[in-house]
Design a protein around this nucleic acid. Structure first.
Length: 510
RNA sequence: CGCGGGGUGGAGCAGUUUGGUAGCUCGUCGGGCUCAUAACCCGAAGGUCGAGGGUUCAAAUCCCUCCCCCGCAACCA
C-alpha cells in the first residue's frame, strides 16, 4: 500500500555557510529520493533552513541588517548549492515562513493543553558584557568562553517541556524498534543516555527576541529544538490534515549528522508522543568528514567549500566520492589525492573505459548498430545473472543506507564486464568471419549489462547515467522496468562514447 | 570515575555472534592482452590479527589483566 516515501535532511542554520557536511547529508537524501522514484514511489524530499535564534540576531546586528535580511541572503547560498549538486528536493522550508510559525504555535498549544508544558525557572551563567547565557559545561574556569570575563549565575523564566514523563515510553519504543536509531553504535549511546534519566527540557527564552513567540506570552520566544524539529511536520501542512500530511507522515527516514542525534532521537520523539503523533520510522546519524586528516574548522581555514569541489572535479565525481569513500555512519577523511584516485581508478579506468571500449567495438565491428544476440554460453549466462542480480542488491543496500556497499555492488558488475571482455576476446572473434554470431552475442551482453548498471547508478550519478545511456541509444528516464535484462533492442544505433571521466594528472595542482 | 566502540600485511577496512587453511580495495612487483582514457585481465610478495596470561586437540575469534585511540556524559549545524 505504502508507495510513499518521505526523507528529510536537517534544516541548516543560516548562521553558517554551506560546507562539505551539509552537502553530504543532502546528497545522501537525494540518492534515496531518486532511487525510490525510480522504483515508482511517490517521494517527498524535504530540506530547508533554521533561521531563528540569538546567533542570527547578533550576526545580523553586527552586519547592520535585519535577521530576515541575513537569512534571505544565506538561504540563497544553500539553494544555489542544491541546484549545483543536482538535489531533487520537493520542498524547501524556512522556519521564518508563516506555515511553519503557524504549525509550531499550534503544536505548542496542543502540548501545553495536555499539561506537558509548564512555566518554570532556568538557571544559567550569564556574561553581562556579552549579554549571553552559558551553561556550566561551556564555561572555562567559570569564565565566559568568548571574552574570558567572570560570569554570574542568573535565573531566567522559561517554559519547560515535560520530557521526563516520556522516558519509559521512549525507551520501550527504541527497544521495540531496533532500526529506529541507526547505526547501532549510536543507538546504544542513546539508550544509555535515556536510561540515565531524562530531565524536563527548557523550550523558551527571554534573552532574545528573534524567534516564534510563545502563544499567550510574547516575552518568550520558542527555543531552538521545539521550533526547528517541527519543520518536518509543518512542511507537510501540519496542523492541517493535508494530503501531504496524510501521505507522508510519519517520515521514512530523517538523515542527520551525528552531532544532532540526541535532538532527533530523544527530544523529537518525545515531542511527537506528547502531540499524539506517530514517530519517524528511522533516524540515521552519519559520520563526520575530516579534511586532509584534520578537523574541518574555520580557524584552520580548511573548510571545504562544495562549490569549489564541483567546479574542480565535476558534480557526479563529487557525488560518487562522498558516498563511496566511507561507509555511511562512520567518520571519513576528505583529501584531494583520494578524490583524484577515485576518479582515475573507479570512474575513468573501470566505469568510463568499459563503456568506451565496448561502444568502440560495436562501432568498429558492427558499424555502430547493435546486433541481435545469439544463444548465450555459460560465460554469458553467468555475466547476465550477475547483472540481473544487481538491482536487488542495490535496493537492499539502500534500504540500510549502505551507499558505499551499493556502489561496490555496481562496480562488481562493471569489473565483471571488463573481465568478460578479456575472457571473450572480441578482437579475436572479429578476425574470424565464422564467429560473427558469437561476436554479436558478446557485444549485446556487454552493452546490456552496462545498461542495467547505469540504471542502478543513476540515483547516485544522474548526469553520468543519462549520458552513458544516451550512448547506448537509451532515451527514456531510468525506471524500474529498465532494470530487466533484454531492454536493449537489436538495430539500436550505438554511439562511440567519449571519455566520461578523463584521467586527472596526479602531479597536477592537486 | 562511568558507559560504549575500536587496535588485523605500506594505507583503509571485512572477518570475532555459531573457535578449525587470515580475506577485500588501493599501493608495490612480475606476466598477459591490444578493443579502450599508458586503460583492462592474471599472478606474486607482504600480517607472530595492540601486549601478556589462561581455556582448548585447535583462538583474530572464548576468559582474565594491561597499554593505546575514539565516541557519549543535558541543551554545541
Amino acid at each position: 500500500m505504502s508507495k510513499n516515501y518521505y526523507v528529510t535532511t536537517p534544516i541548516y542554520y543560516v548562521n553558517d555557510v554551506p560546507h562539505l557536511g551539509h552537502a553530504y547529508t543532502t546528497l545522501a537524501a537525494d540518492v534515496l529520493a531518486r532511487h525510490k522514484k525510480m522504483k515508482g514511489y511517490h517521494v517527498f524530499l524535504l530540506t530547508g533552513t533554521d533561521e531563528h535564534g540569538q546567533k542570527v540576531e547578533k550576526a545580523a546586528n553586527a552586519a547592520g541588517e535585519t535577521p530576515l535580511e541575513l537569512a534571505d541572503r544565506v538561504v540563497k547560498r544553500f539553494q544555489s548549492l542544491w541546484e549545483k549538486l543536482n538535489i531533487s528536493y520537493t520542498d524547501f522550508i524556512r522556519t521564518t515562513q508563516e506555515r511553519h510559525k503557524k504549525g509550531v504555535t499550534e503544536l505548542f498549544n496542543r502540548v501545553m493543553a495536555k499539561d506537558d508544558i509548564y512555566l518554570g525557572e532556568y538557571e544559567d551563567w550569564y556574561c553581562t558584557p556579552c549579554e549571553t547565557f552559558w551553561t556550566e559545561t561551556q564555561l572555562i574556569d567559570f569564565k565566559c568562553p568568548d571574552c574570558n570575563r567572570p560570569t554570574e549565575k542568573l535565573k531566567e523564566e522559561s517554559y519547560f517541556f515535560r520530557m521526563s514523563k516520556y522516558q519509559e515510553a521512549l525507551l520501550a519504543h527504541i527497544e521495540a524498534n531496533p532500526d529506529f536509531i541507526q547505526p547501532k553504535s549510536r543507538r546504544n549511546e542513546i539508550i544509555s543516555f535515556v536510561k540515565e534519566g531524562l530531565r524536563d527540557l527548557s523550550i523558551s527564552r527571554t534573552s532574545f527576541t528573534w524567534g516564534i513567540p510563545v502563544p499567550g506570552n510574547p516575552r518568550h520566544v520558542i527555543y531552538v529544538w521545539f521550533d526547528a524539529l517541527t519543520n518536518y511536520l509543518t512542511a507537510l501542512g501540519y496542523p492541517d490534515k493535508t494530503d501531504d500530511f496524510e501521505a507522508f507522515w510519519p517520515a521514512d527516514v530523517h538523515l542527520i549528522g551525528k552531532d544532532i542525534l540526541r535532538f532527533h532521537a530523544v527530544y523529537w520523539p518525545t515531542f511527537l508522543m506528547a502531540a499524539g503523533l506517530p514517530l519517524p520510522k528511522k533516524v540515521f546519524a552519519h559520520g563526520w568528514w575530516t579534511v586532509e586528516g584534520q578537523k574541518m574548522s574555520k580557524s584552520l581555514q580548511n573548510v571545504v567549500e562544495p562549490h569549489m569541489l564541483v567546479d574542480r572535479y565535476g558534480i557526479d565525481a563529487v557525488r560518487y566520492f562522498l558516498l563511496r569513500e566511507v561507509p555511511f555512519g562512520l567518520d571519513g577523511d576528505f583529501s584531494h589525492s583520494a578524490m583524484i584516485h577515485r576518479i582515475n581508478s573507479d570512474l575513468a579506468n573501470d566505469l568510463g573505459n568499459l563503456l568506451n571500449r565496448s561502444t568502440a567495438m560495436v562501432n568498429k565491428y558492427f558499424k555502430g548498430v547493435l546486433p541481435a544476440p545469439g544463444e548465450l554460453t555459460e560465460t554469458d549466462l553467468a555475466y547476465r545473472a550477475k547483472s540481473e542480480a544487481l538491482p536487488g542488491i542495490v535496493d537492499s543496500c539502500l534500504e540500510d543506507l549502505a551507499f558505499s556497499k551499493a556502489l561496490q555492488a555496481i562496480w562488481d558488475v562493471i569489473s565483471a564486464g571488463n573481465k568478460y571482455i578479456d575472457e571473450t576476446a572480441p578482437w579475436t572473434l572479429a578476425k574470424d568471419p565464422d564467429q560473427r554470431d558469437r561476436l554479436a552475442t558478446v557485444m549485446y551482453c556487454i552493452l546490456e549489462s552496462q545498461r542495467i548498471a547505469f540504471h542502478t547508478l543513476s540515483p547516485f550519478m544522474p548526469d553520468t547515467a543519462e549520458k552513458a545511456l544516451g550512448y547506448l541509444g537509451w532515451r527514456e528516464p531510468a525506471s524500474e522496468a529498465g532494470l530487466v535484462w533484454g531492454g536493449l533492442q537489436a538495430e539500436t544505433p550505438i554511439t562511440k562514447a567519449e571519455a566520461l571521466f578523463p584521467r586527472i594528472d596526479e602531479k597536477g595542482d592537486a
